[in-house]
Every structure is written in structure tokens, then in C-alpha cells.
């Protein structure tokens, strides 16, 4: 790693100020960023560690019944503390990486990085969550803008994520056996107003909503309802682990499993 300074602010305001330093980079749990720095794929001059900010950690319910999760909350804490509030989300968090990674990695870090194979983007998009930063609120539908690309501006920090709680939900991940990232992951959430289906791991454009499946499931919430549907593999990730067509097929299979498990 190239060397850098480390700042450990105790408040969001101090973190925002520190992010104003030249070539500053926010550091969540570091489970992606530190390996990236080791490979010298990034060379920030200062890392602003967000994990010591108490006001950014924890899980609670808002007055309007949404589950609010601080940006610096670890996957392990979400798995534990959101289990009764939003089981589908807690279940997803409980299968990210491995236990030691879940004790460091944070929801804000995952959403800010927007890895095309990460789990949390599927939950945020599939729940129609709101990403709250130190300056504004962003709807998940506007937030994800392609592989490793988000609506975040330079220096902007995810302080909280708010999830409307669905009637039922489930996340099914087909793991890439070496990395344990999603080869394909599908998050299905049934709300009074309709069903949302978000897919990670598959598309060259990162996480996306599968609108045909949403329409079919909104009128008939059963695995049979998505059986006849198919996606094109043309814009799917194609690598040694699976072709685009293989991933497209997996999306259908995992969607069916998620529906069965949620129902």
C-alpha cells in the first residue's frame, strides 16, 4: 500500500470536513477498500474512517414504520438487530462474506462501492429504499447508476439507509464458490402496492429491477408466475464462472426460489 493519513472523526460533521481534504477517501469497514489499496489500485492521501461515528451506527424503526440503518452499521449487526424488524434484509446481511468480514463491513460502504456482485444493492433497490447522505436523500431507483457508479457526489457520505418493510421478502444468492460474492442474487419484496424484484451479480450495468417479473408477481405471487419469463443474456456479465446466457437463466431460477421461500 502507498501510505496515507488516517482520520477518525467522531461526528458526521467532522467526517464531512475531513472529506474536504485533498484526495480524501471515506473508509467504511474496509473489507473491499483495504484489499484494493494493497493492490495499489487506489492512492488516496487520507482515509476518513467512518466506523467511530456513533450517530451512524445501529438499527431502529422510524415513526412511519421504516427500518433505518446507520451507514456505519456492520453486516453482522444488521443480521442480528434487523432480524425481527425486516427478516429478508437480515437474512441477506447474514450471508455476506464470512463472519469476520461481517463484523467489519458496513452497509454504507457496500452501497457506496456498488460492486456489481454485492448483495446490499439488491436489497436497497428491491425495497425501494432511501439512501440518506450528509447533504440529501436519494431514492434507490435514482441512486444506482451502473457498475461501481452511484449518484454520490465527491465527498458525500451515506449516513443512513431507510427501508420500507414489505409484507414478505427473500434473497436468494447463487454464490461464486471462490469469492462467495453473488454469481447471481435476486431480492424479491412484496408490498401492498406491488412486487419489486432486484437482481445483482448478473448485469454489466450493475444491479437492476426485473420489471417483467415484477408485473407477473404483482398479479400472481408464485414461482409459477415467473416460469415462462426469460431474460436476454446479451448485456449480462460473461466470465470464466458463467456466460451471460447462464446468468440470465440463473436469474429466473433464483427469482422462483426467492418467491417460494418468501411466500
Amino acid at each position: 500500500m502507498y501510505n496515507f493519513d488516517v482520520e477518525r472523526p467522531g461526528t458526521v460533521a467532522d467526517a464531512a470536513a475531513a472529506m474536504g481534504r485533498e484526495d480524501a477517501q471515506a473508509l467504511g469497514g474496509g473489507q473491499t477498500l483495504i484489499p484494493t489499496l494493497k493492490q495499489r489500485l487506489a492512492s488516496p492521501s487520507v482515509l476518513v474512517s467512518l466506523t467511530g461515528i456513533a450517530e451512524m451506527a445501529g438499527v431502529c424503526t422510524t415513526d412511519d414504520g421504516q427500518v433505518a440503518i446507520g451507514g456505519a452499521t456492520t453486516h453482522g449487526a444488521v443480521a442480528r438487530d434487523a432480524a425481527s424488524l425486516y427478516p429478508g434484509l437480515a437474512g441477506l446481511a447474514s450471508h455476506i462474506g464470512d463472519p469476520a468480514v461481517r463484523n467489519r463491513g458496513t452497509i454504507g460502504g457496500s452501497l457506496a462501492n456498488n460492486d456489481p456482485s454485492a448483495c446490499y444493492p439488491a436489497a436497497a433497490l428491491g425495497s425501494g429504499a432511501t439512501i440518506i447522505t450528509n447533504t440529501r436523500s436519494i431514492a434507490a431507483d435514482d441512486y444506482f447508476q451502473g457498475m461501481f457508479t452511484t449518484a454520490l457526489e465527491e465527498g458525500e457520505i451515506i449516513t443512513e439507509v431507510r427501508f420500507p418493510v414489505p409484507e414478505v421478502s427473500d434473497y436468494q444468492k447463487f454464490v461464486q464458490p471462490a469469492s462467495r460474492f453473488a454469481l447471481v442474487g435476486v431480492f424479491v419484496a412484496k408490498y401492498a402496492g406491488g412486487v419489486r424484484v432486484a437482481v445483482t451479480g448478473a448485469s454489466n450495468d450493475g444491479v437492476f429491477r426485473w420489471s417483467e417479473a415484477e408485473a407477473a408477481l404483482s398479479s400472481d405471487f408464485s414461482a409459477d408466475a415467473v416460469k415462462g419469463l426469460s431474460l436476454s443474456g446479451d448485456n449480462m456479465i460473461s466470465d470464466l464462472h458463467g456466460t451471460g446466457a447462464y446468468r440470465a437463466h440463473l436469474v429466473g431460477v433464483m427469482t422462483g426460489r426467492a418467491v417460494t421461500n418468501a411466500a
Binding site: 477518525r8 474512517s49 469476520a100
Partner: peptide, 20 residues
Amino acid sequence: VVHVNGEAIKACTMLAAEAD
């Protein structure tokens, strides 16, 4: 793997400064 504040973490993926 070591324990930091009681939780198992990977010591190669945490900065010493963060364990202050």
C-alpha cells in the same frame, strides 16, 4: 483472525490506527 472488542475480525484487513 483476532478479536477486537470481542468480535472476530481479520487483522490483515483492519488498520492499526482503527484499533486505537
